[in-house]
Design a protein around this nucleic acid. Structure first.
Length: 432
RNA sequence: GUGUCUGUAGCUCAAUGGCAGAGCACCUGACUGUGGAUCAGGUGGUUGUGGGUUCGAGUCCCAUCAGACACCCCA
């Protein structure tokens, strides 16, 4: 018999963890659907060639398999490539622009860390087929509303644009192609400080004057409007950067018009992200409670979704990482503290009262109250109450001879210890 | 993928190279219509796994698996 253990980076989710996970997922789905996003589900397995050639260096992280027929398969790496496949495969059945969400597992053979696993769930939202800055704004709005619905007290979404970074590189006289390392250095500003970035830039072969110019732009702080104006002055010679700043201004106005609290977002020229497939706006949410890095992120990627269709399909989206949210919420004590699904435990006093108790449970369920019943009518009441308490059920109901003779039910609040007799027909109401 | 650290009862952790232990949890009872508190008793281990050194290994060495942290990258 093999030792029982999990595959590295893959976890079991026991009921307490599962209850919080489901709360997170259900809460997010609620927000998505209030914006009119539609659900999509695709298989966890894809033909390997569907995933190949889209991820660059990350390709080695893909889990690959052969099935019994020798077909080369792969576990999906994210929800984005499957979306691209669906958009191409069902073009006749999909009306653009399409707001779609997908919740499910993806797999990456990375080194696991806190908030980062080899099997992980994402709640992914995208708007497919729209260039509008309102689409970008709406994704950020969904992000904001989602985190607020989950009860996050503080978070900020940093906004930037790929062509703002490109402009910063260009006006500093750098080869854009070779600028990847520079973006990564810039992105680390908050972690390693201005001098750390200067050091890294120098290592990348950037001369002192260039580094100073880059840092001057990247260190801009303050209101989004001020940052925007300052960047316009620095980048006014670069047409693509100017267009990007116009786009960011439109997105910011969209957020304002949508009524998203200004404290929730901020223009940040230092935000870089992976950038491998982003083509426009990028964003990333940070929280002081998650020093490990970004809570979630996303952006516009106009080239990726259309690749199977053979045309550009403007798309903007983001992914909520369920495990990461779960780990942060657990640390912060956010979310419901339920340890079980049942709100009520119906005891069975004895053989004589068994029918009455089971029928009461049925009535409560019909009224929408989640109920679990005692399975051992012979066991003493104390033991049944103990079971209810240990399961974490809020109320215990007792239907003994005394209660039955008065057509009452004893309702005991296991948290406070208070108990009272309630008329049988009023029990469901009393438990609300 | 690189580096550092950790792994002993269900959980949190003790044990100088020399008899594997405690607290909590769990089970039973004190308590035949009342859970939590208290008291008494009890169950529970191939010390992650496989090798090696040694008279003797939880302890030292090697490998491996898993976890944590910092890089890398990301949800």
């Amino acid at each position: 018999m093999q030792k029982l253990q999990n595959i590295k980076g893959m976890r079991d989710h026991l009921p307490p963890a599962m209850l919080l996970r489901q709360y997170i997922i259900n809460t997010l789905i609620g927000v998505f659907e209030r914006y009119g996003f539609e659900p999509l589900s695709t298989p966890v397995l894809e033909y390997a060639e569907v995933l190949e050639g889209k991820l660059g260096d990350d390709e080695k992280l893909i889990y690959r398999f052969e099935d019994h027929g020798g077909r080369k398969l792969a576990l999906r790496y994210d929800q984005t490539v499957p979306l691209a496949r669906v958009v191409a495969q069902y073009s006749g059945q999909i009306t653009l622009p399409w707001r779609r969400y997908a919740v499910g597992a993806s797999y990456r053979g990375e080194r696991p860390a806190r908030g980062r696993y080899r099997e992980f769930w994402q709640a992914d939202v995208d708007i497919v087929g729209s260039h509008s800055p309102l689409a970008d704004a709406e994704i950020v709005a969904v992000l904001s509303d989602g985190l607020e619905a989950l009860g996050f007290p503080t978070f900020t979404t940093l906004l930037n644009h790929r062509q703002v970074l490109g402009g910063i590189a260009r006006v500093s006289g750098l080869d854009e192609e070779a600028a990847g390392g520079i973006y990564r250095a810039i992105d680390k500003l908050d972690k390693i400080g201005a001098e750390g970035v200067r050091e890294e830039l120098r290592h990348s072969g950037v001369d002192q004057g260039c580094a100073d110019r880059i840092l001057e732009m990247v260190l801009l702080e303050g209101s989004s409007e001020d940052t925007l104006q300052a960047l316009r002055q620095h980048l006014h010679d670069d047409a693509r950067a100017v267009a990007a700043l116009d786009n960011l201004e439109d997105i910011l106005r969209g957020l304002e018009d949508m009524g998203i609290a200004p404290a929730r977002y901020c223009l940040s020229p230092r935000l870089a992200r992976g950038l491998s497939y982003y083509t426009g706006a990028v964003f990333e949410t940070i929280s002081s409670h998650w020093p490990q890095g970004s809570l979630l992120g996303g952006g516009r990627y106009d080239d990726l979704i259309g690749m199977f269709a053979g045309q550009r399909v403007a798309t903007v989206g983001l992914a909520f990482g369920v495990e990461r949210l779960h780990d942060v919420m657990e640390e912060l004590g956010l979310g419901p503290r339920n340890r079980t699904t049942a709100q009520v435990f119906v005891t069975v006093f004895g053989a004589e009262q068994r029918v009455a108790s089971l029928q009461l449970a049925r009535e409560l369920r019909a009224a929408g109250v989640p109920v679990m019943t005692a399975l051992e009518p012979e066991s003493p009441l104390g033991k049944q109450l103990k079971e209810a308490d240990r399961k974490g059920v809020r109320y215990a109901l007792v239907l003994g001879p005394d209660e039955l003779s008065r057509s009452e039910v004893l309702v005991k609040d296991l948290a406070s210890g208070e108990q009272r007799g309630v008329a049988r027909e009023a029990v469901a109401e009393a438990l609300r």
